[in-house]
Design a binder for these strands. Structure first.
Lengths: 217, 217
DNA sequence: GCATGTGAATTCATTCACAGCT
DNA sequence: AGCTGTGAATGAATTCACATGC
């Protein structure tokens, strides 16, 4: 029903859906019943046409002359993003970043449940980290399957990342978020997202170094 | 010298420069002297033309028939990205994420020096976090200026983020990395990058939910 | 022969502008 | 009158293809 001829959705549109979702959470709290593409765009520094086009990929949720119903639109975007489901997440590598992510409140709120932790450090294995036992990475394939993990977050050192990634893929996981600063190879049917803090910081240092070449970000 | 008529460099090109930089670090370690756009593209899942075009924005570093000299190209990209300088970084909010970032080794390696920490929690203020004193956020403006901080990383709760951001801007800082899940408003001459883990995870859950609409990432 | 550097062609994303509904 | 939904127009990013140089 909510689709016409099935077009490819761009990554930037997906990214903006998340932005709309957050904006709508806020609008709901503020008591808004409806919101126009114009106002939503203003708040998120986008254009009204962009907002309307993004939403139109998934159906027509708005009312001409009025705008979009906040509650319904939020719910609908939540569905599109898959936030109405619970996702079983495993984290490999319980170092600084991994450890911070385990207790990142936002995740749980959006339905991402960290179910398993893995590490290869014998001193960590078996210990309890914020209520979750740290498992030996050696048993990763079996445990990912048993616990029906759908998303794996990799926060191991660069040198170990591809090996971990291969095992995760072998276990049948189709979504991986990689924090290691290397390009991982995965089959076409696996979605891999790279989250590399250094790269983002480098973007800032580039911008500071080449202010003349940079207009907007 | 290394520029022709000064074109606007796109964010995606900047992002790929960081990717090339990392690839070149690896190639150098592996003992490569030269690398072709073809091979570099293969390793990073890009096209050879893309690699050449990206690099050509900054000059011609290659040799026809041979490829690019690994060492020189790495050094040159490092310069372009501003990695030959040291950058003074401050972090506001010493919670889970902020705390993890302080000890993120990669940062220091690239010349990003975390000089100041701020928090508004009286229990944290004055205490020593991995060798750095946590300061009262009330004194932020003055301290950012005194210590000549160029980059600020914001990891405070959403509700507090805009206020912090305003103060940072007032202090004259031109580069901000925001981890809070809100859209911050900054003047045009300030570069703001949003790093939102939830949004990235939502991208994965979208992909899993709408596998048909997603081809490549 | 091989691989760069780059205009030209193409593909993809954004914005315009307006018909159509409330 | 106000605002959506969407083809058409524009603009941006990527890829093609080839002349140029080692």
């Amino acid at each position: 029903m909510a689709k016409k001829s099935m077009r490819k959705i761009s990554n930037s549109t997906i990214h903006r859906l998340s932005i709309y979702y957050r904006a709508l959470l806020g609008l709901e709290r503020e008591g808004y019943e409806t919101i126009s593409s114009k106002e939503l765009a203003r708040r998120e520094k986008l254009t009204p046409a962009q907002v309307r086009k993004d939403l139109s990929f998934f159906g027509s949720f708005g009312t001409r002359g009025l705008g979009y119903p906040v509650k319904e639109l939020k719910a609908r975007i939540g569905e599109i993003l898959g936030l109405n489901k619970l996702w079983n997440v495993a984290m490999v590598g319980v170092g600084n970043i991994g450890s911070a992510l385990v207790s990142y409140k936002e995740f749980a709120k959006q339905g991402f449940i960290v179910k398993l932790l893995f590490d290869n450090d014998q001193r960590k294995i078996g210990s309890n980290h914020k209520g979750i036992i740290i498992n030996d990475i050696a048993s990763i394939k079996q445990m990912l399957q048993e616990q029906e993990i759908q998303i794996v977050i990799v926060t191991v050192p660069a040198a170990a990342a591809q090996k971990v990634c291969d095992e995760v893929v072998e276990a049948g996981v189709k979504a991986i978020m990689n924090f290691a600063p290397v390009s991982l190879k995965v089959p076409d049917d696996v979605v891999l997202l790279n989250e590399n803090m250094s790269i983002e910081l480098e973007h800032l240092s580039f911008s500071l170094t080449n202010r003349n070449m940079v207009l907007s970000d």
